[in-house]
Design a protein around this nucleic acid. Structure first.
Length: 281
DNA sequence: AAGGCTGCTGGTTACGACAC
DNA sequence: GTGTCGTAACCAGCAGCCTT
């Protein structure tokens, strides 16, 4: 039972003084993640052990001291290597805040961006980021927030490139967009795969194939991701777990719990207990 | 005692192979 | 690229145990 997620030491920090930043710290975890995405920019910092990051059919092995940048909405998974535990920090940076910083940097409106680096392994380059994270976690001062923002700024400047907002509008892409709209129209009562197939005059298998080709995950996984993202917001804003489960479309708390563990490697309770970094002082 | 977490089971979804 | 089919994996709902 000690290997259960509930026994993993992990904390989430958030502060009203820096609402664009959330830190997650996980110690010695073997817990795997299913493929998922975040609307925020995710910056991972490996503290101990090794982890395997999978995305775009690539697999990267990261070790202690490495930093990885995961662009917003990039489907990815991050799992242990050879059943060895790993400890890591994840810094989630609000998407709009990143766009604002990039807009200032590039002197033009930026509404989308991508990252042109897979990971940083040079200790000389990554140590200041680790130091800033540690200062933010332990000192929790306004100057620590400013230092962290400088570090993020440097990463944005060096590795994040504004994207052209002109969307491809192939019929396939439009169809997948349509499926996403149908799935999210009523997140509590989404259409079944069979209903979607009937509506779009396709087989369920074709829908899954098309969706996965363009989105990187299956329609069901996409739906779970959106539910969990909404659940995280509701939990962080004080809604209890049972109400959150119903609010995002799960029949009961146990279903939310299971999906939450699968996609975040944390329990809803652990996430709910996230506290202000200033609560410690 | 209440809320949180997990095991079990039937139904649904995802996937791979193959054919066209 | 799409449809069909068999199989594997996953999910929903329920029940009951564990933790606080």
């Amino acid at each position: 039972m000690q290997s259960s997620v509930r026994y993993i030491q992990q904390q989430f920090w958030h502060s009203a003084k820096a609402p664009h930043l959330t830190i997650r710290t996980t110690h010695k975890s073997l817990q795997a993640y299913k493929a998922h995405s975040h609307e925020s920019l995710s910056i991972g910092a490996i503290v101990e052990g090794m982890t395997c990051l999978s995305y775009d059919a690539k697999q990267l092995k990261l070790s202690a001291g490495d930093i990885v940048l995961i662009p917003p909405n990039q489907v990815h998974a991050c799992n242990p290597v050879a059943q060895h535990t790993r400890s890591y920090h994840m810094l989630y940076v609000d998407y709009d805040w990143c766009c604002l910083q990039l807009s200032k940097l590039h002197a033009k409106s930026v509404t989308q961006f991508d990252c042109n680096v897979e990971y940083l392994a040079d200790a000389h380059a990554t140590q200041p980021f680790f130091d800033a994270l540690e200062a933010l976690r332990t000192l929790a001062s306004s100057s620590a927030i400013a230092t962290m923002e400088q570090q993020i700024h440097a990463l944005l400047q060096a590795y994040c490139v504004p994207q052209n907002t002109v969307e491809q509008t192939s019929s396939k892409k439009q169809q997948v967009q349509h499926i996403k709209q149908l799935l999210l129209a009523d997140i509590c009562h989404p259409p079944s795969l069979q209903q979607l197939a009937t509506d779009l005059r396709l087989t369920p298998e074709s829908i899954i194939r098309q969706f996965k080709r363009l989105e990187g995950i299956t329609p069901n996984a996409y739906l779970h991701n959106k539910r969990i993202e909404k659940a995280k917001w509701l939990l962080a804003n004080g809604l209890d777990i049972v109400a959150t489960a119903h609010e995002v479309g799960y029949a009961d708390q146990s279903q939310l719990h299971r999906a939450f563990v699968n996609y975040t490697a944390a329990t809803p309770r652990q996430y709910q207990q996230q506290r202000s970094i200033f609560d410690n002082n």
